[in-house]
Amino acid sequence: MPNNSVVLRVPVLGIIGCGRMAEAMLSRLLVDGLLPEQVWVSARSPQRQQYLAETYGVKVTTNQEVATAEILLLAVKPQAFADIEVELADAEVARRAGIVVSIMAGIYSGRLRQLFPQRLIFRAMPNTPAQVGAGVIALASDSAAGELEIEKIKSLLGVLGRVVAVSEGQMDAVTALSGSGPAFIALIVEALCDAGVAVGLSRSLTQELVYGTIAGTVQLLNERALHPAQLKDAVTSPAGTTIAGLEVLEAAGVRGTLMQTVKAAYERAQALN
């Protein structure tokens, strides 16, 4: 049965830029008990607008009307935010009280507060696994927000996965690590799958083995509270297959390359500000 408590915690939700991530949140909130009539959304293309209205029964309207919602989710690309600023700059709705939750990378709360001076500002960074409810969502709360407002936003974002509290100063690092991280992991997964095929396994069997190995390794690390080095050493026996493979990884500088990858993503996130 739907969790009707969610309805009480989220009285009205407005979404500007209802793309894939925002749609994932919308669909899960509706399953949990949020009513379609409590949600107003905007989208750029007429096809997208029609899809959202027909699929979810929500009200699709202008950015200015969406901005009247008590909780406003900003989910446009960071590069498109300047257009939103121009559109809402002189609109009275931007000066109403309420809450703004931004999932835009690189747009700091100070800039958001200039547009929404009377609202509490929250910044969140979900990652792609949030589309299946398995994400990690970093949340930086407004210093003026009370416990009730913070719990309300945690409940809103919690349908996407685990919510982790961070400071806004950490948000660029979060973007680089967990925001971009799924792409880095997917590249590693793809390479392992190709390696399985190279040593004679079928593609379907290789994918089953690789996906299961990665999921199981993460579960073991979590449930046993192991440091990754502990698990690595437990798998590595003298003169065995694992140490032979690890030697190749270390010679290729994989450890350092991954660190530099995250640092490059971090620098790019800072450049978006």
Rank of each mutant, 00 (worst) to 15 (best):
T68D: 15
F116N: 00
K77P: 04
Y108V: 11
L115K: 06
E85P: 03
G110P: 04
E54A: 15
A69V: 00
G106V: 01
K59E: 14
S102T: 06
D90V: 10
Q64D: 14
E54C: 13
V76S: 05
Y56N: 03
F81Y: 11
V58G: 06
E87M: 15
V76C: 07
I84E: 01
A94P: 03
I71P: 03
V93Y: 02
V86A: 14
Q114F: 08
D90T: 12
A75L: 02
V76N: 01
Q50W: 00
A67Q: 08
V86L: 13
E70D: 15
Y108M: 09
A80V: 12
R111A: 10
V66T: 11
A105V: 10
A89Q: 14
V86K: 14
V76W: 04
L112V: 10
L52H: 07
R96D: 11
E92I: 07
E65F: 09
I99F: 02
Y108G: 08
Q64G: 12
V93K: 06
G110S: 13
A82Q: 13
V86H: 13
D90S: 15
Q50T: 09
R111S: 08
E54N: 15
T55E: 15
A53I: 06
A67T: 08
F81A: 01
V101H: 06
V100F: 01
P117L: 08
I107S: 04
T62R: 12
R95S: 12
A97P: 02
E87Y: 05
E70A: 15
T61P: 11
V100K: 02
F81W: 08
Q64T: 14
V100D: 01
E65S: 13
A89I: 06
A89M: 10
E65H: 12
L72V: 08
K77A: 00
L88V: 12
R113Q: 15
Y56H: 11
A67L: 13
V100S: 02
E87F: 08
L112A: 09
E85W: 07
Y108T: 12
A53L: 11
A105D: 02
I103E: 00
A80I: 13
I84R: 00
Q49D: 03
V100C: 03
Y51F: 15
R95Q: 15
F116C: 06
R113W: 11
R111H: 10
T62G: 11
V66C: 14
A53G: 09
Q50P: 01
M104E: 03
A80W: 09
G106W: 00
D90R: 14
